[in-house]
C-alpha cells in the first residue's frame, strides 16, 4: 500500500501521542495522552471533494505538516518500514507448566496474551486498555501478572505502549522496557493470580473462522446485529 503525506501525518500524530506517553512515564505519574487531533483553526467548509469513491472527507489532513517535529518524523519512518508480525500465535497449556520460573512472570500465560486465549493480538490490547483504566480506581496488584506486559513490576501506560509496539511489529521483545539490572520485584505466589475471577476471563476472543469447533463458549456474543436498544 502506498504511503503519502497524509498517512505519514496520521502516523506522526499517533506517534506523538505514544511518545508523549512514553516520555512521561515515571512510577508516580500517569500521563494523559493528548495530542491535538487537528489544526486548531479547523474549518469544515474548506474541504475538498473526496477523490476516492465514497462520500466526502471533510478536510485534508495537513494536520501536522506545519508543526512537523523531527522527533515525530523518526517515529513515522519507523512506522513506514512496518514489518509483518502483527499477530502471533503462541501455543501453551495453562495447566501443563509444573516448573514455573523463579524470576520473571509466571510462565503459565504467554507474555502479551492478556486474555489467555493463546494468541497475542488486538484483543489483548483492548483488554489491557480496559484493565489499565480500571486500575486507576482499584487497588489490585498487577506486578508480574499478564497485565504487566513489560515486566517492570507494575501496570502502567508503558505496558500499553509496549504491547502496541509489539503488535505493530516495531518491537519483537515485549520486555523491551525492562532493565535487566534491576532487582525483580517480589513474585506473587505460584499459580493463577488470585484476583482473577474465572468468570471474567474471556476465553474466546479470537475470531472464529466459521468452524463449529471454534465458535464455542458462552462468553461469545450472540450473533445478530448490535442491539440498538434493549
Amino acid at each position: 500500500m502506498k504511503k503519502n503525506k497524509k498517512t505519514a501525518a496520521t502516523a506522526a500524530m499517533f506517534a506523538t501521542a505514544l511518545n508523549m506517553a512514553l516520555g512521561s512515564v515515571t512510577p508516580d505519574t500517569v500521563p494523559t495522552l493528548s495530542v491535538k487531533a487537528d489544526e486548531p483553526d479547523y474549518e469544515p467548509s474548506a474541504e475538498y471533494v473526496e477523490e476516492v469513491y465514497g462520500p466526502p472527507e471533510f478536510f485534508t489532513t495537513t494536520a501536522t505538516e506545519d508543526a512537523y517535529d523531527p522527533a515525530t518524523e523518526t517515529e513515522t519512518t519507523m512506522a513506514v518500514v512496518y514489518g509483518p508480525p502483527s499477530m502471533m500465535t503462541t501455543e501453551y497449556d495453562p495447566y501443563g507448566n509444573e516448573n514455573p520460573a523463579v524470576y520473571g512472570p509466571p510462565s503459565f500465560f504467554a507474555q502479551g496474551d492478556i486474555n489467555w486465549d493463546g494468541s497475542t493480538d488486538v484483543f489483548d490490547l483492548i483488554r489491557l486498555r480496559q484493565e489499565y483504566s480500571d486500575s486507576q480506581t482499584n487497588d489490585k496488584y498487577y506486578g508480574y501478572t499478564e497485565y504487566d506486559v513489560n515486566s517492570d513490576g507494575r501496570l502502567s501506560i508503558a505496558d500499553l505502549v509496549a504491547l502496541n509496539r509489539f503488535l505493530l511489529g516495531r518491537s519483537t521483545n515485549l520486555d523491551w522496557y525492562y532493565d535487566g539490572d534491576e532487582e525483580p520485584m517480589p513474585q506473587p505466589e505460584y499459580g493463577a493470580p488470585e484476583y482473577l475471577d474465572e468468570d471474567e476471563i474471556v476465553t474466546t476472543t479470537m475470531m472464529p473462522d466459521n468452524t463449529s469447533e471454534e465458535t464455542t463458549t458462552a462468553t461469545y456474543p450472540v450473533y445478530g446485529p448490535p442491539i440498538a436498544f434493549d
Partner: peptide, 20 residues
C-alpha cells in the same frame, strides 16, 4: 457482533498508527 465491531475498529486504528 459487538465484539467484532470493536475488533474491526481497533484493527483500522492499529493500521493507521502504523502509517498504512
Amino acid at each position: 457482533t459487538k465484539e467484532d465491531y470493536v475488533y474491526m475498529i481497533e484493527f483500522i486504528r492499529t493500521m493507521r498508527i502504523a502509517g498504512e
